[in-house]
Simulated assay, not measured.
Amino acid sequence: MHVEDIKAELRKRYGSLASISRQLGLNPNAISAAIHRPGNSIRTERRIAELIGKTPHQVFPDRFHADGTPIPRAVIRTPISRVPDRLRANGAMA
């Protein structure tokens, strides 16, 4: 779903995003942050989908697999190649 569609659906059913957050016992900005920042809070993203009456994958297809498991957001920082020796100072990284 588009971000604006999610926000509109929540507002139509429950009121402002801040009031929904407070009713759930969260920070007033929690719902908005979860909608706008992927991976900010998987639990809140699931709660948003539950409030709308859909699965997390239907609401956030780029954040959840079809089975409901979150898509990992971790960046793989393993180097894929070595720095050429000609770019090193005295054979050591500068």
Rank of each mutant, 00 (worst) to 15 (best):
V3I: 15
V3N: 14
E4Y: 12
D5M: 09
K7I: 10
K7M: 11
A8V: 13
L10M: 07
L10E: 04
R11Y: 05
K12T: 12
R13F: 06
R13M: 08
Y14C: 01
Y14W: 10
S16D: 13
S16P: 03
S16Q: 04
S16R: 05
A18Q: 14
R22T: 12
R22H: 14
Q23N: 13
L24F: 05
L26S: 03
N27S: 14
P28W: 07
A30N: 00
S32D: 13
A33C: 11
A34V: 06
A34L: 06
I35T: 01
R37A: 06
P38N: 12
G39Y: 01
G39E: 03
R43W: 06
I48R: 04
I48G: 00
A49L: 00
A49N: 01
E50T: 09
I52H: 00
T55L: 08
T55I: 00
H57P: 00
H57I: 00
V59P: 05
P61E: 12
F64W: 08
H65R: 15
A66C: 03
G68N: 11
G68W: 02
T69S: 13
P70Q: 11
I71A: 04
R73L: 09
A74S: 14
V75E: 13
V75C: 09
V75I: 14
I76L: 05
P79G: 03
P79V: 11
D85C: 03
L87G: 06
L87D: 13
R88K: 15
A89V: 13
A89N: 10
A89G: 02
A92E: 15
M93F: 13
A94I: 11
A94W: 11
